[in-house]
Nucleic acid binder design. Structure first.
Lengths: 209, 209
DNA sequence: GTCTATACCTCGATAGAC
DNA sequence: GTCTATCGAGGTATAGAC
């Protein structure tokens, strides 16, 4: 059975009840903002529900449990980060990868909630039993792989010194990124994350370029 | 009024009830280990009491509130850190300050509980309302001051390049320290914090030495 | 899809006996 | 110095009406 073009079975109609998808997105956004301040453990689903404009049970209709909500938040975050960094294109290699990280820092500077979300969750999720633990491991692992490959590629092309300690450079880059955000949260606006991160990148380029 | 040497008014006597000081120290140690895993918000005073070998109320006899316990923990930590780094002597200046930081990292490598304590608490305490917020600000502020002075002194003595961006170097050093510990907690023993931190220090020495 | 009501737990803190 | 008992608040999750 087929229909002529333009024919729609389900036409748009005004409705009081928002669609499940709308409610989910609103809730995820609310959860991001609240987790960013209180972390996962310090935020109640009632808080998220209130910010979403739902009762607690109303929220639990869309996310059967608090951890389900967390999973949705993490998935959302990972996706947006990947979209920003790569956006369908090939991941940059060589020092360009580190320049891409600078862009990421610039983007983060405009999104305190995302910085807070990561800083809080990653500290909590260090613990093996935490519901975001695996996510955190995956996050680090993919970041390490990408930056590691970028440096190895740079060695092949002669942009990176042959004796550059890849693992240490990669880990330190990630460490600067995370530690800087931690400091920045204490006093947002007290320094430029971009400028500071650039200083770091310049230093490693100078040393192992 | 004076007593002959060797004469003691209060002689040691066996007692069932431990002294207040003993109980306090036991509780602080227990709290450190528990805060290191669950953070401040994620740890109940009942947990601390159990680990100390007291009932919840028994613990609250020594620390009138949960925040009082936290304060004692923070004070304890700050003191031990200062003792380790300076130990009554003058704080080292120039690049020696950064070498001292390497020693600190080496010490931390043997104390996962301290690393955990700092990572969790500092992430929570980023929030202005957190009971450890001021402590965190003070911690960063004193660390920044010391490392900043060290670099300025190095400039005077010609060990540090005149155009070295002091603030960025200092902040990045602290960032590496913090971020590295965060990664290390995810998989303690998966890499050497000392070696990695040395790589960072070498890089900045190379660039601005 | 959203709500109220509720079950059941844990938490921080206080009161008061020993 | 340590305990039991208890209060009141707030947490997750479920049942069931609309």
């Amino acid at each position: 059975m087929s229909y002529p073009a333009g024919y729609r079975i389900e036409r748009e109609r005004p409705r009081r009840r928002q669609s499940g998808e709308t409610a989910r997105l609103k809730a995820i956004q609310a959860a991001i903002e609240l987790f960013a301040v209180g972390g996962y453990g310090g935020t109640s689903i009632a808080d998220v529900a209130a910010k979403t404009g739902l009762s607690q049970s109303g929220l639990l209709h869309h996310f059967p449990s608090k951890t389900a909500l967390l999973s949705a938040v993490l998935e959302h975050r990972s996706k947006e980060d990947a979209d920003f960094l790569f956006d369908g294109e090939q991941a940059p290699l060589g020092w360009e990868a580190f320049d891409a990280m600078v862009s990421l820092v610039a983007r983060n500077s405009t999104r305190p909630d995302w910085v807070g979300l990561f800083v809080r969750l990653s500290a909590e999720a260090t613990e093996p039993g935490h519901p975001a633990h695996q996510w955190l491991l995956d996050h680090y692992s993919s970041l390490r792989r990408w930056l590691g490959e970028a440096l190895e590629d740079g060695k092949v092309h002669g942009d990176v010194a042959q004796d550059a300690p890849v693992e240490a450079i990669v880990n330190n880059t990630i460490a600067v990124l995370d530690g800087m955000q931690q400091q920045w949260l204490c006093a947002p606006g007290s320094f430029s994350m971009v400028a500071q991160f650039r200083t770091f990148i310049e230093s490693i380029k100078t040393t192992w370029g």
